[in-house]
Simulated assay, not measured.
Amino acid sequence: MQETEEKVVDANQVIRSHMMWSMGAGLIPVPVADIFAVSAIQLDMVRQLCKIYEVDYKETELKAVVSSLAGSIVAKAGARVLKFIPGVGAMIGGMTLAILSGGSTYALGEVFKKHFETGGTFLDFDPARLRKMYDEMFEKGKKYAREIRVKEVQEAEELIQTESSITEIEKEQSSNASEDVVGKLKDLGRLKEEGLLTDEEFAKLKKRLIED
């Protein structure tokens, strides 16, 4: 029982990490290159799931099964077309494909995890039978990916706001420091005028204030 739970935990970690990597690959600004990157990430994920559940596989079988389930989702995404449009089109296309890639990877991982948990192998893996589960997990994965993207955007905005606040504080501190130096120079000037400081002493103190 404990071994099974450990496998589930390990599998979930593998799925999540590869989902995140797929989303990052979906943001690659070069059309086609992003598709190859996502496919490679998904294949690596399934290999790791096979290792966790001790399932033997052949590379040709692995690629065929993965392609039959997930290949068409990302490859046919309309976001690829948008990426050819400079500026906003490329940005929107990348964001859309990132969500689709993340959702597809999540769905693929969940399908293989469930199949392997029940003792399944590549010999009895039926893409047609598991298509419904994949589609359901794909919708769930897209929602999950959107939530991740929203959180990332919020964190980025908070970071920008924090950096902006720090800059304002530094400007204010710099302004206050400048005003403080000016005030002290005026004080030195008055002391010199009153004969309490010699020209040499005034020059030394003035230099020290400016340098500090």
Rank of each mutant, 00 (worst) to 15 (best):
E3P: 10
E3N: 08
E5W: 13
E6S: 14
K7C: 06
D10L: 12
N12T: 10
V14G: 00
V14W: 01
I15C: 07
R16C: 01
R16Y: 05
M19S: 01
M19E: 01
I28Q: 11
P31L: 07
V32N: 10
D34V: 06
I35S: 01
V38E: 02
I41W: 00
Q42R: 03
Q42T: 02
V46G: 03
R47K: 09
Y57F: 14
K58E: 13
V66Y: 06
S67E: 06
S67Q: 12
L69P: 02
S72T: 09
V74G: 07
V74I: 10
G78S: 06
A79K: 05
V81H: 13
F84C: 08
F84R: 09
G87E: 03
G89E: 12
G94T: 06
M95H: 01
L97I: 05
S101R: 04
L108Q: 04
F112S: 07
F112I: 02
K113E: 03
G119F: 02
L123V: 13
F125Q: 09
F125L: 04
P127E: 12
R129M: 11
L130Q: 09
K132P: 11
D135R: 06
M137F: 12
F138S: 01
K140F: 02
Y144T: 00
Y144I: 00
A145T: 00
A145S: 07
A145W: 00
R146C: 01
E147V: 04
R149V: 00
V150I: 06
K151C: 00
A156T: 11
E157K: 10
E158W: 05
E158H: 02
I160W: 04
S164F: 14
S165A: 14
T167R: 11
Q173I: 11
Q173Y: 07
S175M: 12
A177N: 15
A177Q: 15
D180Y: 11
D180P: 03
V182A: 15
V182Q: 15
L185K: 04
D187Y: 10
G189L: 03
R190L: 05
R190Q: 06
L191E: 13
L191A: 12
K192Q: 10
E193A: 14
E193K: 08
G195D: 07
T198P: 03
D199S: 04
E201A: 11
K204M: 10
K204N: 11
R208S: 05
L209V: 12
L209E: 10
I210H: 11
E211T: 08
E211S: 09
